[in-house]
Design a protein around this nucleic acid. Structure first.
Length: 281
DNA sequence: AATTATGTTGCGGT
DNA sequence: AACCGCAACATAAT
């Protein structure tokens, strides 16, 4: 499901309700979904919840980390007693029937609260890692697109080293992290750049337009609580809203908002790609 | 009913 | 080494 805005949306809501709680039990309904649990996490307290790239990072009181990657269809749904008594944040109706057939791991937490990890396609994972193990995992990623470390100089230099299509390069998480298919499509449309253009053919000006556009659409995604195209849900089970703001993603044969050209669909790097042949050159 | 597509990324092969 | 294509899996749409 998620790109950076979707994981950030979950992180912001999860942090305040998880921090300070103790893990009282863990139920693993699908072994593949939970890896590396060599030491017990029962009784450990959650001290920190953050996000890096598309990874959610839950730090425990013994300095170990639970890293969660939702991949295509992962969800984290939180329930507590306050909600069940009707006094908390409202939740979507379907969360009352959890666990569902797609629930893979259940964390039972203190204060009668529960965190469900649902993942239809089972690509996602939770890994229990040491501080060093978590660092290794993070080191696979370049800086987040909204990190000030992503300067024009940095991406222009990285773009200049490859002739792969620009869309493939901005989705390469070892170069910049957090730009997935929805936002890559939209950023290229906003910057009026053809997704197939070789990365090393972009001028410095075009690169700046693209950088600004990526930051803009990612921030817009965060502002609207992520995009629910398929499985993405916030921790209360409700959808995001960015899908109503998309520029080109899944808008084949509709009019481009820049120029009223007709949006076409093609495939680049094996991924569905939407662009306006009129203004994206 | 079979084929194709899906928000991610890691792998094996060139 | 860079790059490409596909596999991991379940489901919905055509």
């Amino acid at each position: 499901m998620p790109e950076l805005p979707e994981v950030e949306t979950i992180c912001k809501r999860l942090a305040p309700v998880l921090i300070g709680k103790t893990i009282q039990n863990i139920e693993v309904l699908r072994e593949k979904s939970l890896q590396g649990l060599s030491t017990s996490i029962i009784g450990k307290k959650i001290v920190e919840v953050s996000r890096k790239a598309k990874l959610l990072d839950i730090k425990l009181s013994d300095s170990s980390h639970l890293l969660i990657h939702l991949k295509m269809t992962g969800q984290l749904i939180y329930q507590d007693q306050l909600q069940r008594l009707g006094g908390g944040h409202p939740t979507a109706d379907w969360v009352d029937s959890l666990p569902s057939k797609h629930t893979r791991v259940i964390f039972r937490l203190s204060n009668h609260s529960t965190l469900f990890f649902n993942d239809m396609r089972v690509f996602g994972w939770i890994k229990h890692l040491s501080e060093e193990g978590a660092s290794v995992e993070f080191s696979r990623y370049g800086p987040d697109i909204i990190d000030p470390a992503v300067t024009l100089e940095y991406i222009f230099s990285r773009f200049s080293k490859t002739s792969r299509p620009i869309k493939v390069v901005i989705m390469d998480s070892s170069i910049i992290a957090g730009v997935g298919n929805i936002y890559a499509n939209d950023a290229l449309n906003l910057a009026k750049i053809h997704p197939n253009k070789p990365a090393n053919s972009l001028t410095q000006n075009e690169t700046k337009e693209l950088l600004d556009a990526m930051i803009e659409v990612i921030n817009l995604g965060i502002k609207h609580g992520g995009a629910t195209i398929g499985n993405f849900r916030n921790i209360d089970g409700f959808s995001g809203n960015y899908q109503t703001k998309v520029l080109v993603y899944q808008r084949e044969n509709l009019a481009c908002f820049n120029c009223a050209g007709i949006i076409k669909k093609t495939k680049i790097g094996g991924r569905g790609t939407f662009y306006c042949p009129n203004c994206q050159v």
